[in-house]
Amino acid sequence: MKKRREKGNVFVIPAIIWIFVFTIFPLVYSFRVSISRVSYGKITGLAGLSNYIRMFGDYRFWGTLRFTLIFVLISVVATTFLGLGLALVFNRKMRGLKFFRSLLTMPLFTAPVALGYLGVMMFYEENGPVNVLLKYLGMGKVPWLSHPWWATLAICMVDVWQWTPFAFIILLAGLQSISDEIYEAAIIDTSSGWAVFRYITLPLVSPVLGTVLMLRLVDAFKVFDVPFSLTSGGPGTATRTLTFYIYTQGLRNFDLGYASAMAYFLLAITMVIGMLFFRRYRELYE
């Protein structure tokens, strides 16, 4: 068998080479930039750790980090649990389910840039569709785009709209793979639907839940397009994500050293969170 094991390299090596070629250079380059003084794209000297130190005194950095964390928390939790809820509701035989499911894939293909602009119309405060709907439901005028907290919520809603279907489809698939016999046995033992869910469904579906959470986490940390086109990060910097701030600092203001330092910080955060998750994921799987 030893010979075969060696041969396995053939399979992974192309992908590894590819990633080395296309990500190692950018990574090394931006690391070098992050410890340099850069002016208009030209490295003019060594900055040591000063770009990293600058981060700690930059209130805007902490503000964007705070928003990023709030956003990640709200939207990851909301998409996953809405997706799970819908998946539980639709985990049954019914007509038109497949059509329903493919309808739900449409948001995944909507370019987030366009979605943000569409949001400007949907969340229009003076008699926009969302506010009119809320008026019928007896709520007052909601300042969706002109108030920091509501703007945060608006961004989260757009993200939830786009990604709930993703969670739903994967989780539904997960649920449907649980065999009926397990349920039948469980229903004989207990009559409480909650108990069935808590002790049977949840443990069985949790590996999938882990995957969904993981993928959503990684992507939510990088969100850029929607705040960019819906609120431009405003009012003030209330809805600026860290990625957005890195982008502005690096590509608009060409303060590349600082931008790269922040990018490394963001990379570190996501890696740590990812690793913690992955460890848990591993425990569940192996």
Partner: peptide, 18 residues
């Protein structure tokens, strides 16, 4: 995990090198 970690890269950081 190493493969997955490539998805963590903030695009804004790699866009200039690219």
């Amino acid at each position: 995990f190493w493969f997955l970690s490539q998805r963590f890269l903030p695009p804004a950081a790699t866009v200039i090198p690219f």
